[in-house]
Design a protein around this nucleic acid. Sequence first.
DNA 1: TGGTGTGAATGCCTTCACAGCG
DNA 2: CGCTGTGAAGGCATTCACACCA
Lengths: 222, 222
Amino acid sequence: MSGKGAPAPESAVTRLSHYLRRLEQLRAARVVKISSRRLGEAVGCTGAQVRKDLARFGQFGRPGIGYPVDELAAALRRILGTHHRWNTALVGVGNLGSALVRYEGFKRRGFVISCAFDRDPERIGIHVGSLAVRDVSTFGQVVRENRIRLGIIAVGAGEAQEVADMMTAAGIEGILNFAPVEINVPEGVTSYTVDLAVSLERITYRLVHRDEEKRGTPSPAP
Amino acid sequence: MSGKGAPAPESAVTRLSHYLRRLEQLRAARVVKISSRRLGEAVGCTGAQVRKDLARFGQFGRPGIGYPVDELAAALRRILGTHHRWNTALVGVGNLGSALVRYEGFKRRGFVISCAFDRDPERIGIHVGSLAVRDVSTFGQVVRENRIRLGIIAVGAGEAQEVADMMTAAGIEGILNFAPVEINVPEGVTSYTVDLAVSLERITYRLVHRDEEKRGTPSPAP
DNA sequence: TGGTGTGAATGCCTTCACAGCG
DNA sequence: CGCTGTGAAGGCATTCACACCA
């Protein structure tokens, strides 16, 4: 894999995912090679950026030719760790949780939610897709038996830290958190929080400040 | 609002959201003031970062005292544009779409999904929560009548661009896209893509590379 | 000519450090 | 003494520009 000492910045890792997504589209369209510039255009960055990002991990391109779509996709899957399947445990089978269980986009990228948990007795035992909801008290046992390394938190803000603690105690190494609070995890565990409302606020911020620029005044409530 | 010419970087805007979220928790706990250092700790950055971010928009703190929780929260809501309610139109009432319609986290932050659309005749007319799903062909009309400025895309990758085009044609100014493709929008429209699989890949990247550091070798498939 | 890989340069964000106020 | 606001310094990511290859 020929990595270069320096760790990749978070933004670069995100771009690698985008490159891979684009490469998979190209592969489906039977495209066999692509230049850094066109790959960059498709994901919204420059060609130089693409080359720098990839060069960090090895030599994948050929001067005068470009990058081989298939090989580069395979390399990116190895780099991102998605060249094999990841079994994942989800806690919190409410609206969002059950939608995530049924979400097809995870499977296509190699992520399989292989067990789902809740603490509400009314939910335990019901099926979401083909998956039976289990009692959260069995979490540690199930995770260890199946050697699951990834967890998804889809409970409310109030219970998120508690669930995170339970996950790390059970040996989970990576946590994707959909609760709108920052969670604390021990050294060695990776967590990432997706706050859907924050995503919308990033947009409204731009709208409001675009308006201000145009009109030279803060926007009143409509 | 006393902005300073320079536009806030995306990362700073995201932190503003996090500050606000934390301030609302503090307010619920009847805390009336907070120092930049402790606010930073709660969201994972330094005190200096907090002060720099806030100073960009005005003077909110008092030397020797800290920041007034209530006032700062109100100021951040104005800055982010969430001091008033935002009506939002969602397209694609599948798993994810219907979960988003029912998601409580949006309402709490002032985002109300006030109409939902689909093109599948089997879905049109059904209720999701208290909202009736409408025919997507009525999108433009509904959006204009209700002066809706925000749109959420919850369709598949293949239809996302088409939906985005329809939204901008209808006058939508900001788009939150859950389809795993980058969408192109005209100048003046703000879009932001949330790809759930990418979030997981950020985590697996760290896991794989943490393993490599420890063992000095790439990880084989298990 | 078209394209990669890469040192150098640029620009931006973050951190530092401190004056000044409560 | 504690804490903010801020210029200056530092570090890091992106862009530039070019040697080199097909």
